[in-house]
Amino acid sequence: MKNIINLNIKEKVFKKTHLSILNNFKLEVNAGEKIAIVGESGVGKSSLLNIIGLLDTQYKGKYTLFGSLTDNLHESKLAQWRNQKIGFVLQESALINSLTVEDNIKLPLLYADSEKKESILEDFESAMNAIGIEHILKKKPLDCSGGERSRAVFARGIIMKPKIILADEPTASLDMKNKERIVNLLFKMNKEFDTTIITVTHDLEVAKRHDRIIYLERG
C-alpha cells in the first residue's frame, strides 16, 4: 500500500490561550486505510483534521501529503487539493442559507474541470438517493432538520469523490437508520475508489469498524 500521509507535529499552540496540543504526534496513513480518531474533548481531534486537511498550517512540524512536503507547495496548489483531493465533513462546515441544499452540495463543482463535473452530475441523483436527501434538495438549509443538514454537509464533502475524506463526528446528530446509511456510504467509497477515510468520533461502535483506532490523550 502506498503511503499518502506522513505527519510529524512537534506541537500546536493556540496563541490566545497558549494551550499546547498534539505534542510529538506522528501519523502515517496508507492509501485506502480507514482510521478512527477518538479521545476526550479538547485533546486536539478536530485540530488534527484541520491540519491533515490543509486548513491549518500554524503548527511546528513537517507534513508530507501525496508525496510532497506541504511547506514547499504554493497556496494555489493547496487550494486545489482541498477542493479536489480532500473531502471535508466537518461540524463547522456551515451551509449557505441563501442557497438551496442542492446548490450548497454542488459548490465544489465550481472549480472542477468540465470532464469531472459532467461525470459527477451523471451520478448526482443516485448519490442523493443513497444519502436519503433527494426530498430536500430544493429547500433552504434553515427549512431542514439538523439531521438533514448533517447529511447535506456529508454529500458536499464526498461529491468530488476525493482521495481522502476527513469526517468530524459525521453521525453525531443522526438517528440509527441514517447513521448506518452514512457509515455504509463511507465504507462503500473506501472499497470502490480506495478512498482513505479518517473519522473523528465518540462512537466506539463506529470507531471499531475502521482498520485502526488512534487514541489522543492530553500531554
Rank of each mutant, 00 (worst) to 15 (best):
N3S: 13
L99R: 12
E102R: 09
F124Y: 15
I197S: 09
D168I: 14
K208H: 11
I51C: 03
D123I: 12
T64S: 08
I37L: 06
M128W: 03
V29H: 02
A31R: 15
P170F: 05
K85A: 11
N129L: 13
K12F: 02
D175C: 08
A112I: 13
E205F: 13
F124W: 09
I159V: 08
I105F: 04
G87W: 04
G157C: 11
D194R: 07
L121T: 11
N129M: 14
V101P: 00
A79D: 10
V13K: 02
I5L: 07
I133L: 04
S126A: 14
E122P: 04
L54N: 07
H135Y: 11
N8S: 06
E217W: 02
T199C: 15
T70W: 00
L174E: 01
K179S: 15
Y59Q: 02
L107V: 15
G61T: 10
R151F: 00
D194I: 10
V200R: 01
T57M: 11
V38H: 02
T57I: 05
G146M: 04
D194K: 10
K106C: 12
A152K: 06
L90H: 07
N83R: 12
R151A: 01
D168Q: 09
K2P: 13
P170T: 14
V13C: 00
S119I: 08
L95T: 08
L174I: 12
I197W: 03
I198P: 09
N24G: 08
L99H: 12
I182K: 04
S98K: 10
M128S: 03
I133E: 00
F14M: 10
A207L: 07
R156A: 11
K15N: 13
K15I: 14
G146C: 06
E169H: 12
D71V: 08
D211W: 03
K106W: 05
Y215P: 09
K188V: 09
E28M: 09
T17P: 05
T70N: 05
D143W: 02
T57K: 11
N72T: 14
T195H: 03
K138S: 10
L110F: 14
S145C: 04
Q58C: 08
S41M: 05
N3I: 15
G87S: 07
G44A: 01
G39A: 05
I5A: 07
K161C: 09
E28H: 03
N104V: 08
K60M: 08
S114A: 14
V206K: 00
M128H: 02
S93P: 01
P141D: 05
K2W: 10
K179R: 15
K16C: 06
E75L: 14
N30D: 14
S126P: 10
S126F: 09
Q58M: 06
D211T: 10
L78E: 07
